[in-house]
Simulated scan of single mutants.
Amino acid sequence: MNATPVPGAVPYFCQWESAHLAGAIIRKELALADDPAWRASGARNIDEYVRWASHVCGMACLKMVLAARGGQTHPTLELARRSLPFGAYVEQPDGGIKGLIYAPFVRYVADVFGLEAQVRVDLPAAGLPALLAQAEYFMASVHPWIRWPERQPPGKGGHLVLVTRATPDSVTFHNPSGEPGTQADVELPLAVFDAFFAGRGVAILKAG
C-alpha cells in the first residue's frame, strides 16, 4: 500500500495506490482495475480510478507536499477533482485527460491550500541547486523513464517528480511512478537527471 508519513521526512506516495505493485502496473502485468487499494485514492468508483490514476503524478506530488507541511493525507483523486474548477486538468470529450496545466495548478494550490508556488520554465538542470536554496520543493517535468536511469530516454518531460534536494553534483527526488527501489529519496547525478529533465516545472516556495 501507499507509504505513511515519517516524522522529519517528506512522505512518499505513489500515484497508484498499491505502491508495492507499481512495477507490475508499469509492465502491464496488473491492470489498474485490479489494484486492490484503489478505494484509498478517493475515486468514486473503479472506472474513475482507472481513468485518472496514470494522470495524477502532479497530484501525488502535491499530496506529498501537503503531508510534509501539515501532516494531513489527502486522497489523490480528491485533490484532482478539487483542481478541476481551476482548470488544472481538462477532461476531453473522448475521455482523455489533459494536464497537469501549471498556471491553473498554481492558482489552485494558492486558493485552496495557501501554498505559494511559481511556474518555472527554461530552467537548466545546473540551476536546480540555486532554486532549491529558495524553494522548498520543485515539481520537475521529466521523462517517465527516469525510473530506469540507466536508459537513454526518447525525449524529455511528460511526468512530474518531487525534487526535495539538489546540489551541484546530484538531485534527490520522490517519483510517483517509480518502481519499488526507484520511488522515494532517489538520488541521481545531476548530469543523469538532466538527460530526463525538460527544464520546466512548479516551485513550491518556503512557508512564511
Results as ranks from 00 to 15, higher is better:
Met64Ser: 03
Gln152Ser: 15
Lys206Ser: 14
Glu116Phe: 12
Lys206Ala: 15
Phe113Gly: 02
Glu136Asp: 10
Val106Glu: 07
Pro180Ile: 07
Val161Gly: 03
Cys61Asn: 09
Thr4Gly: 09
Ala203Gly: 05
Leu77Asn: 08
Arg27Gly: 13
Pro5His: 00
Arg27Asn: 13
Gly208Leu: 11
Asn45Ile: 03
Pro11Tyr: 04
Leu32Trp: 15
Gly155Met: 04
Gln72Trp: 14
Asn175Gly: 11
Ala184Phe: 03
Pro93Lys: 07
Leu160Phe: 14
Leu79Tyr: 02
Ala33Asn: 07
Pro189Ser: 13
Leu162Cys: 07
Ala40Gln: 09
Glu78Tyr: 08
Ala33Pro: 06
Gly42Lys: 03
Leu123Ile: 10
His74Thr: 13
Glu136His: 14
Ser18Thr: 15
Glu179Pro: 00
Phe193Tyr: 10
Glu17Ile: 03
Asn2Phe: 08
Leu205Ser: 12
Phe86Tyr: 15
Ser170Cys: 12
Leu123His: 02
Ala125Leu: 04
Pro124Lys: 00
Arg81Ile: 02
Ala88Leu: 07
Pro153Glu: 04
Ala24Arg: 15
Glu187Trp: 10
Arg200Val: 07
Gly42Glu: 02
Gly199His: 01
Ala19Glu: 01
Ser141Trp: 12
Gln134Cys: 08
Ala88Asn: 08
His174Val: 02
Arg69Leu: 06
Glu17Pro: 10
Pro176Cys: 12
Gly178Leu: 06
Pro189Met: 01
Ile204Asp: 10
Val163Pro: 05
Gly114Pro: 01
Leu66Ile: 00
Ser41Phe: 03
Ala207Trp: 12
Ala24Gln: 15
Glu78Gly: 12
Leu21Pro: 09
Glu29Cys: 07
Met64Ile: 00
Pro168Gly: 01
Ala33Cys: 13
Phe113Thr: 03
Gln15Ser: 05
Pro176Gln: 10
Phe86Arg: 07
Gly127Cys: 06
Pro144Asp: 02
Glu136Asn: 10
Pro5Lys: 05
Leu62His: 03
Ala184Trp: 02
Gly99Lys: 07
Val121Cys: 14
Gly71Tyr: 10
Val65His: 08
His20Met: 13
Ile26Pro: 00
Leu77Lys: 05
Ala207Phe: 09
Glu187Met: 12
Thr164Asp: 04
His159Tyr: 10
Pro149Cys: 13
Arg151Leu: 15
Lys98Val: 13
Gly23Ile: 04
Leu188Pro: 11
Val10Ala: 04
Thr172Pro: 01
Pro153Phe: 09
Gly8Cys: 04
Ala80Ser: 08
Pro129Cys: 00
Lys206Glu: 12
Pro124Met: 06
Lys63Trp: 01
Arg147Trp: 06
Trp16Ser: 06
Lys206Tyr: 05
Glu91Ser: 09
Ile25Phe: 15
Leu30Ala: 11
Ala88Cys: 13
Leu79Trp: 02
Pro36Arg: 00
Gln15Ala: 07
Pro36His: 02
Pro11Gln: 04
Gly199Lys: 00
Asp47Cys: 04
Gly96Thr: 10
Asp185Trp: 09
Val56Glu: 03
His20Cys: 13
Arg39Ala: 14
Pro7His: 02
Val192Ala: 14
Ala117Pro: 07
Cys57Gly: 01
Thr164Met: 00
Ile46Val: 15
Ala67Ser: 09
Asp94Ser: 05
Leu131Glu: 07
Leu190Ser: 00
Cys57Asn: 02
Thr76Glu: 14
Pro154His: 09
Thr164Phe: 01
Val106Ser: 14
Phe13Arg: 01
His55Cys: 09
